[in-house]
């Protein structure tokens, strides 16, 4: 199985917790007409990391770096959930059974389904075991 087609390139941006930083990121992406599919903010003492799935990650990387932001790419995977009660617990069971170690996760509700985005420590193994357990992974091409 080609795990490549399920590996999604997420951009991560370091941001201080001060007013206007998030707006600056959003504005920069808007200026370049970059679509944001999913989005999360993780916060710690004084700083945070903004993570986003966008349609043009390379352009987003370039634009934000030019503005002085510290940006990196991270490979993540996206699992489709049934958009109804119990959707998350199905996925959680699959992940648990496959003993996949999750670094972090965030969800968004798309047009057709709810999606759980995962950063795991071994992307290829995770893709194989989730697919084997009947999980519905979204192809990277859906995010372009």
């Amino acid at each position: 199985m080609d795990t490549q087609e399920y590996t999604i390139k997420q951009i991560s941006v370091f941001s201080e917790n001060r007013p206007g930083r998030l707006a600056a990121i959003a504005h920069a992406l808007e200026e370049e007409k970059i679509n944001i599919f999913a989005f999360s903010i993780a916060e710690a003492k004084g700083f945070g990391v903004v993570r986003a799935l966008v349609d043009k990650p390379d352009l987003a990387y370039k634009k934000l770096t030019e503005l002085g932001f510290m940006v990196s790419f991270t490979n993540v995977i996206a699992v489709r959930m049934r958009d109804e009660p119990g959707g998350l617990s199905d996925i959680a069971r699959i992940i648990g059974d496959a003993s996949i170690n999750i670094e972090y996760a965030y969800a968004y509700s798309g047009r057709d389904a709810a999606v759980l985005i995962l950063r795991v420590d071994h992307v290829e193994d995770a893709i194989r075991s989730i697919r084997a357990a009947g999980g519905d992974l979204i192809r990277a091409e859906m995010f372009t």
Partner: peptide, 18 residues
């Protein structure tokens, strides 16, 4: 300032650096 090479998108990594 954190060096660009050291930037991790995992909060725990950054917390550990701090």
């Amino acid at each position: 300032e954190v060096s660009r090479e050291a930037f991790s998108d995992k909060i725990t990594d950054l917390m550990n650096i701090r």
